[in-house]
Each structure stands twice: as structure tokens, then as C-alpha cells.
Design a binder for these strands. Sequence first.
DNA 1: CACTATACGGAACTCAGGTTCCGATTGCGT
DNA 2: ACGCAATCGGAACCTGAGTTCCGTATAGTG
Lengths: 213, 213
Amino acid sequence: MAASPTKTQAPPAPEVERTQRADARRNRERVLAAARGQFAANGLDAQIDDIARAADVGVGTVYRHFPTKEALLEALAADRFIRLAEWAREALEAPDGWEGLCDFLRRSAELGANDRLLSEAMAERDAFQGAQGEKEELMEATAALVERAQATGELRPEIGAQDIAMLMCGLGRATGPGSFDHAMSWERYLAIIIAGLRAPGSSPLPPPPAEPT
Amino acid sequence: MAASPTKTQAPPAPEVERTQRADARRNRERVLAAARGQFAANGLDAQIDDIARAADVGVGTVYRHFPTKEALLEALAADRFIRLAEWAREALEAPDGWEGLCDFLRRSAELGANDRLLSEAMAERDAFQGAQGEKEELMEATAALVERAQATGELRPEIGAQDIAMLMCGLGRATGPGSFDHAMSWERYLAIIIAGLRAPGSSPLPPPPAEPT
DNA sequence: CACTATACGGAACTCAGGTTCCGATTGCGT
DNA sequence: ACGCAATCGGAACCTGAGTTCCGTATAGTG
């Protein structure tokens, strides 16, 4: 495209991305995909060498795209959080609040049960600072979902978004790949939890400790 | 190696235990205690050096008593399983079946929430072969507890001992030390689960996949 | 009190897994 | 087609954690 003087486009913004060779971009995707697979199956201790091999790429290439294992991890974790947040927002569109919540839980559970990285990333308090923003967005969407489900009176009123996160995290870690009974599907676990979330007249939950906004 | 004919090699009963120096026995206990603490706090990746230091003992001493990290781990895991099994049997004495189960769950949850090793040991399917027997004993006791609680009609009939294990494992891993919200006590999580286990008229659970005897 | 088998401490070794480096390749503007 | 800079591959390097080894210290015994 000729740089016509009228090209009002291309303002001062230091467009960083564009001068990247095609193969580089392609390899980046490969690495990402391979890493997703390895981390899903083996959790945090998947190995860089394996990822490189799975991506059919040298280790050096992995490191050129992601300066460190941690960075790669965070990129993927952020990815997951974003997807979950999207699902949560979609669920907000559902006609019924309670149904919407359940759908969201179902999708999350399935994802979590098949991706060790997700539940491990969700669990560790300190690590994954890089994906903190995305995580918070997810929590916000979840909170909205929770409130809507409580408005109709179906979801116990004491529940908060934190509770949901905690429960789904437990589900992932108990039923995920490599866990003691991955075959026994996450669906049983989820069904029990959902029943517990809705239960009408049971004794109130112990108070949550100083909910951070 | 010469099979010396006179070397009758001690009588058949290889009484291993008794000729052990007093300090050796004492140190063994120290190591065990220190290891318990370290593993509880840091899970499987607690380090031998730290355990030795905490026990105020040299690394060599740790290895003289336990040939390998794995061995130490298994000794401790077995320990935990045994204690849980005892608790389960105690709970069988409770006047009410459902109450007994809940008491057991409460004690297990508290232990699990404060001991990363426990839930990690419970989860890993392959590892910890050494503690397999103890684990099975626990599962049996749990099964008895479950049946009794179902007899009175309070516990949902589809629940099995495996479900309990899975749930408690998730609880431990979601609320344990180092997890994303250890402060948010395990009690909330447990309350939700208990509600879910009892829930009367909710939709039936998806079927368990080929329960191993 | 002397003697020896038992136990101890901790430096040194080994190995695994993350990270770096650099010569060989290869996309792409001219 | 040419040439340079962006990329690549993967051997080499570094660090951390489990394990081994051996000279020294000590409980227990005659």
C-alpha cells in the first residue's frame, strides 16, 4: 500500500508488533499450543524441553518468545481466566439466574477437570502475578452471576464469588488429570456442590473472613 | 561372596528393632516430627535439607533412618491414613449415623486443611504405593460410615466412600496452607459440601464409573 | 576406663531441568 | 538474485535438590 500523504492512519503510537517475520509468528503460536497441552496434562511441572519438542521447535525459540517459563505460564493462565470471564458474562444473558450460574459452573468444571494448569493457577496465592488483572475480571463477572442467582432466591445468600472460586479450584485439583480418580468424572463432584449451593434450609455457613472487596 | 557354612546368620526371627542406640531412636523421632511439619507446610516439595535443619540433625542422619525422601513421605502418609481410619471407626460409635459422618468429615477437613501432605498424598494416584494398605483401610472404614449414614436416610444414597475421599481431597487442596485463600476457612467449604451430601430431593448424581471393589 | 560397633554431620557428588549463547538458516526488502 | 537482519536449533552452562561417603564422636559393654 502506497504511503499516500493523506494516510491519516499510523499516528505516533509506537506500533511494536508489526515487523515480525512470518515464521516467527507461526512458531509463537505453535509454542503456545504445545505449552497449553503440556501444562494441561502435567501442571506447573511440565518441562520446557518437552514443550519445545511438542512444538517441533528448539528450546531457544521458546525462550525467544517467552523470556522465562513463568512468563509462558502467565500468558496461558491469563488466557484461561479471560475465557472463563467470557463464559461468566455469557451466562449473565441466560433467562434464569440460577440456570445461568449452573451453566457457568458446568463449563468451568469441565475445563478445570481437563487442565491442571487452570486449577493450580487459581490456587496459588502468590504466583501468577502477571495474570492478576484477568483473574480479577473473572472474579467480578462471577460476583455478578452470584448476585443474580441470589436475587431469584435459588442460591444461598451467604455465598460469594470467592466461594465459587474456591469450590471450583478444589474440584479441578481433585478430579483433574493425574488425580486420584480422574475417571470418576467431575460431574459427580459438581452435582454435589451445586446441591450444596442451593440447599434451602440448612444451617448457615460460617462467616467469611474479611472479604476483600 | 563366600557363603560361609558356619555363618548361620542369626535365628529365623530377624528381630530388627531392639539393638538400637538411644540417641538413634531419639533422632528418628525428631526427624519424623520435623518432616511432618515441613511437609504439612510445604507439601511434597519440602526439602530434605530443611527437614534436617529443623530436626537439628545432619542430612546423613535423615538418610540413615529413611533411605529416601519417598520413604519418609510414605511413612508420614501412612501415619495420616491410619489416624483418619481411627477417627472413622470412632465415628461409627456415634449414636446417630449422620452425625457420626459429619463429625468425621469435620475432623478430616481440619486435618486436611492444615496438612498439605495429606491431600496431596490422597490425590496422586500412582505415588505413595507404600501407604496403599493404610489408605485402603481408611476407605473401608469410610465406606462403613457412609452406609450407616445412608441407612437412616439422611445421606444421599448414591454417595460412595470414593466420593467422600474426592471431596475431602478437593477441600484440602483448595483451602490448605499456601492455597489461594487459606484464611477463608475450610469450614465454609465443608458446610457447602455437607449440605450437598444431604440434600434431599435434588437430581440424582451422574453414575460412578466402574467402582473398583 | 578402654574398646568397638553404631550413629553422626556435612562436604562433595550426581542428576535433572531452566536458561544462555552462538554459529547456521532463512524471510524479505531492494 | 543479493545481502542483511531476524530467527532458529540445540549444545553447553548453571543452579538447586536428592543422595552418598567417610572421618569423627559416642552409647553401651566388660
